[in-house]
Design a protein around this nucleic acid. Structure first.
Length: 231
DNA sequence: AACCAGGACGTGA
DNA sequence: TCACGTCATGGT
């Protein structure tokens, strides 16, 4: 997969692009895009954004999550303090494009307050463990592992639905294998290395999007030869 | 116009 | 434990 897709450079981060065109310089023409390959998180703000993105992307396409994140960021509300203190209705409106916006607004607020209970994002990153994180409402296995791996740099393999779909089709696991078991088998069979955990999951997502989606494109798939195609 | 998207939770069996 | 309904917007 790496040969095919190259390094993914997760996690993606929302960044402001300032236009340098002179003709329209009367207005401050800036736009926001989602950028990969930044070696994020480079600071606590990005770590927090990653956690927020992990919650927003629950059963939702990343494209819709981008819209929600840009709404938050461009309005200056993508911070622990703002999300935990702003009116619920405002938050709901900002994240509406990501879907399930009422429950997600609550989850974002609860999570932000949870981080605040550690004192700061830095302390949260230092102290948080998987069991404690899983007790938070709205944070299940995958979201927890995404936050721990990509925001906190802990060696936790993210075994999402894509992972199960690809590797059950290939024939390496059964399709009814539970999350914790899939996670364990990966952690036992690939090098215990942060970069590899990071990149491996990102490649799985890319592969699932390009070829191994619900209706797979097996003809063009780079893994076609080694796959048992157990659709 | 159905169907799907980087899930999680509450419920009843 | 486990299958099933619910939550919701935007793209194909």
């Amino acid at each position: 997969m790496f040969d095919k897709y190259k390094a993914q450079g997760w996690w993606p981060i929302i960044t402001e692009v300032v236009s340098t065109e002179k003709e329209t310089s009367t207005k401050d023409q800036s736009k926001w895009i989602c950028k990969y390959g930044l070696a994020a998180p480079r600071n606590q703000e990005e770590a927090f954004e990653i956690a927020i993105g992990a919650i927003l992307t629950q059963n939702t396409s990343w494209k819709n999550v981008e819209k929600a994140l840009i709404n938050l960021k461009s309005s200056g509300n993508l911070s622990i303090e703002k999300i935990s203190s702003m009116p619920l209705k405002n938050l709901e409106n900002l994240i509406k494009p990501s879907g399930f916006y009422k429950q997600k607004a609550l989850r974002l607020k609860e999570f932000s307050k949870f981080v605040l209970s550690f004192g700061s994002m830095r302390n949260f990153i230092e102290k948080i463990d998987r069991e404690t994180l899983l007790k938070q409402k709205g944070i299940g296995h995958e979201t927890a592992d995404s936050i721990l791996l990509y925001a906190c740099k802990q060696k936790q393999f993210v075994a999402d639905a894509y992972t199960k779909r690809i590797f059950s089709r290939i024939g390496l696991i059964k399709k009814d294998t539970k999350y914790e078991e899939v996670k364990k088998s990966f952690e036992e069979n690939i090098p215990k290395n942060l970069e590899i955990y990071n990149e491996y999951h990102a490649l799985i997502v890319e592969h699932a999007k390009q070829f191994c989606n619900k209706k797979p494109a097996c003809e063009q798939c780079p893994l076609s030869k080694l796959c048992k195609k157990m659709i």
